[in-house]
Design a protein around this nucleic acid. Structure first.
Lengths: 207, 207
DNA sequence: CCCGGTGATTGCACCCGGTGACATCACCAT
DNA sequence: ATGGTGATGTCACCGGGTGCAATCACCGGG
């Protein structure tokens, strides 16, 4: 089975020349992997199976993804950049937590809002595998680093920036969990704001 | 080399019967592993080398540690329990962040304070390996979960507890980094308090 | 004193994720 | 046509991790 075993939009009607390879190997791998992960679980799925399902060689999988886990966490780079930019763009007077939350809200609009189903599937798959959960918190850690860097650029002191960044990431991830879950239908940006407010309310008496 | 290749206190003077095996395989593995990780790096060290250095079989390594990473993160269970208990023991009027920080301060006294050198070595090893850093944030995630549970027991609302827990864990880890690093000689509990205060100061204008 | 159970250790055979080096070969610019 | 490019494929190999069965000093009971 050298070519795509995945159902793709039919190319009939095009008279562009047949490409050398079935197009979008990257996308086919992702599709195949998510399908198999959901059907059989992450652990019971081998890279060889994914490659076969995508009509590719095992080695080719590793040309597109650094490892088996990465297939589930694509595009983090774009999101990081977007969030960093947005945080830096907030008004000077905005405090670190609200600035970070605003950055996440921007990412919510641009990246997440039109992918609820995909995000929910991803979330289910990750929740079922300790290995993937570990990778997910690692991604959160990287995100916290870029958020902290953006906050430092706004003049927030080193350590305060780091802690604020982690708090904001926690808010973001909780909001995503609610949003992808079944319990509500509010837009993600709103859930971010709500979650942050709940945190601020609960900790306010501390001051 | 069937028996311990690690330097151990000489057993001369004892007339207890020779044990069936050289004692404390667990400790010997840990010692051997940390030594090799520091000398050659985590990636360049194989489990077989560790086992050999400890005078044990490769298979035996996996009877004592779930995987190669775990060897660097021992005893997390004890610390989690201690912290949880301490948080629940705080006065009712204490807010979530200060309650959590107090829990960490208790762990600081009981577990960390007399192990600065070991903690610093561990920190160096972890910093040098992405794989270990990933595991470390996973441990932080587990810690945040137990902190959040303790906070919920104090009546803090679900989501506020989760965010507070992450913030507190971030404070804790930053404090440990400072404490294990060379830049200061203050007790860990004090660094925890300072770091929390810096965070609270920086975010105060938010309110 | 013998005897069977216990439990830390071992040995072996496997599976699978991941890598390095090199071959392939349609496509493309010159 | 021709030589370079780049996505893909083949092969061999390493190392982490597991399942299973065997070993054998120790221990408690008869």
């Amino acid at each position: 089975m050298p070519l795509s075993a995945i159902t793709l939009p039919d190319r009939a009607g095009y008279d562009r020349p047949m490409a050398r390879w079935e197009p979008d190997a990257y996308g086919r791998i992702r599709l195949a992997a998510l399908k198999l992960f959901e059907e059989q679980g992450y652990d019971n799925t081998t890279v060889a199976q994914i490659a076969e399902q995508a009509g590719l060689n095992r080695r080719t999988f590793f040309h597109h993804f650094a490892d088996k886990r990465e297939v589930v966490f694509p595009d983090m780079h774009r999101m990081d950049e977007l969030i960093g930019t947005e945080i830096r763009a907030q008004p000077e007077s905005t405090g670190p937590l609200h600035a970070a939350a605003a950055g996440f809200a921007a990412a919510a609009e641009e990246i997440f809002e039109h992918q609820r189903a995909a995000a929910a599937q991803r979330s289910r798959i990750v929740a079922a595998s300790p290995e993937l959960r570990e990778r997910e918190v690692a991604k959160g850690s990287a995100l916290a680093d870029t958020v902290a860097a953006a906050l430092r650029d706004r003049g927030v002191a080193e350590r305060a920036a780091a802690v604020s960044a982690w708090s904001a990431v926690a808010v973001f991830q909780l909001a995503i969990a609610r949003w992808a879950g079944a319990d509500t239908r509010h837009p993600l940006a709103r859930l971010i704001r709500e979650t942050l407010d709940e945190f601020l309310d609960a900790t306010a008496p501390d001051r």
